[in-house]
């Protein structure tokens, strides 16, 4: 993608994200935060590409570490959010 397109995407996603998240009531702020926290592990996408590109063993290992960290973030984040949200739901 061209640099300009990426920038437009960046701005658009920021605005959309801002709008959507403003609607979340403070009651759900902790689950919201751990949910978006899980999303920040999206950097695993970059990690797999960077690792695949790496030719030296050292870089590959570094890449593997990045993948591991990001996946702990993703899996841990979503699961812990699920645990929390279930507590909110069972009463409704």
């Amino acid at each position: 993608m061209s640099i300009l397109a990426l920038f437009l995407l960046f701005i658009l996603a920021t605005v959309v994200g801002y709008k959507v998240i403003s609607d979340v009531p403070s009651l759900l702020h902790t689950p919201l935060m751990s949910g978006t926290n899980a999303l920040s592990g999206v950097t695993v996408l970059g990690a797999v590409v960077a690792t695949a590109m790496a030719k030296e063993t050292a870089s590959q290992l570094l890449g593997a570490i990045a993948i591991i960290l990001a996946m702990v973030n993703v899996v841990g984040g979503f699961m812990v959010t699920h645990r929390m949200l279930k507590m909110f739901k069972k009463k409704s």
């Binding site: 990426l6 960046f10 996603a13 920021t14 605005v15 994200g17 801002y18 919201l32 935060m33």
Partner: peptide, 15 residues
Amino acid sequence: NNPLLVAVGSVVGAS
């Protein structure tokens, strides 16, 4: 140069 990463990352940033 990964558009998906840019998009999701900025949503989290905004949040």
